Computed example of a mutant assay.
Amino acid sequence: MIKVVIFDLDDTLISEKSFALSAFGEISIELSKVIKKPISVIYEELVSLYNESPNYIFNRILEKNNIHLNKNFIDDLIYIYRNHKPNIKLSDEVIELLLHLKKSEFHLGLITDGFKSTQINKVISLELDKYIEKIVITDELGDNREFWKPSEKPYTIIKDYFNVEYNEMIYIGDNINKDFIAPIKLGMQYALYINENSHYQKTEIKENIGQSISHLNDVLKLIR
């Protein structure tokens, strides 16, 4: 019987794009110092480039505008991106789901990769501690991404926190490359959240991925 429901954060509970759009507001101001265009135009260029691909977006917008700057400027933009205070929120659907799970006496956990300062700012802005009892930011567990997924450690931390067995936990995530490696090894249940906006689902999803859900609310069908 499932006692603990664990969620991924980016592109599961929230859209990673919403975080990016929030950062682009501040980054557009910084870019306007070297790209002689209105801030609103720079913002729209960033959004357009992001929709094509989120990779190397700051390099690409500078190249697009024939601006050649040293790596330090790119690093400054990345710093703003990772450390800005995001203007993001949970959707009504997600809030209703989390409240329903809590009311139904399921324990809730979160495991999220990403740079520590970035993920902490997201957690604070989203007020996740109102809904989720145990939040594990894997970057806080060690250096050099040692305990990022697919490490088993974050799952073990949640198991020990709630004093349950692995087969009493289910993990919901969107990354087919790393989210389910540890849960499978540990004997947990898991489900792929099929999210058309996920960065990690651009390739065709293989049929043998196991359980999958198209809407987060479908998790309720898996834990009855």
Score class of each variant (00 low, 15 high):
residue 81 Y to V: 06
residue 88 I to S: 02
residue 95 I to G: 10
residue 107 H to C: 13
residue 30 E to K: 15
residue 152 E to K: 02
residue 167 N to K: 14
residue 49 L to M: 00
residue 136 V to S: 01
residue 149 K to Q: 00
residue 75 D to E: 15
residue 3 K to S: 04
residue 194 I to H: 10
residue 164 V to Q: 10
residue 115 F to K: 15
residue 216 L to G: 01
residue 153 K to A: 02
residue 137 I to Q: 03
residue 139 D to I: 11
residue 80 I to E: 03
residue 207 E to A: 13
residue 83 N to P: 13
residue 138 T to Q: 07
residue 10 D to L: 06
residue 51 N to Q: 14
residue 204 E to K: 14
residue 198 S to H: 08
residue 125 S to H: 04
residue 161 Y to T: 07
residue 5 V to A: 03
residue 204 E to R: 09
residue 217 N to F: 14
residue 71 K to F: 12
residue 173 G to I: 09
residue 12 T to V: 09
residue 147 F to R: 02
residue 48 S to Q: 08
residue 59 N to C: 01
residue 28 S to T: 07
residue 23 A to L: 14
residue 173 G to H: 05
residue 11 D to S: 10
residue 211 Q to H: 12
residue 188 M to P: 05
residue 62 L to Q: 08
residue 17 K to F: 09
residue 183 P to G: 02
residue 190 Y to F: 14
residue 119 Q to L: 10
residue 97 L to A: 09
residue 79 Y to E: 15
residue 23 A to I: 06
residue 152 E to N: 01
residue 160 D to P: 11
residue 69 L to R: 07
residue 214 S to C: 08
residue 39 I to Q: 13
residue 39 I to R: 09
residue 202 K to N: 10
residue 169 M to E: 06
residue 173 G to F: 09
residue 13 L to P: 06
residue 62 L to I: 04
residue 112 T to A: 05
residue 206 K to F: 06
residue 197 N to G: 08
residue 59 N to I: 02
residue 197 N to E: 15
residue 188 M to V: 05
residue 150 P to S: 04
residue 38 P to T: 01
residue 113 D to P: 13
residue 2 I to M: 06
residue 63 E to D: 10
residue 174 D to T: 08
residue 122 K to G: 05
residue 112 T to H: 10
residue 168 E to M: 04
residue 185 K to P: 11
residue 159 K to C: 14
residue 7 F to L: 00
residue 219 V to H: 08
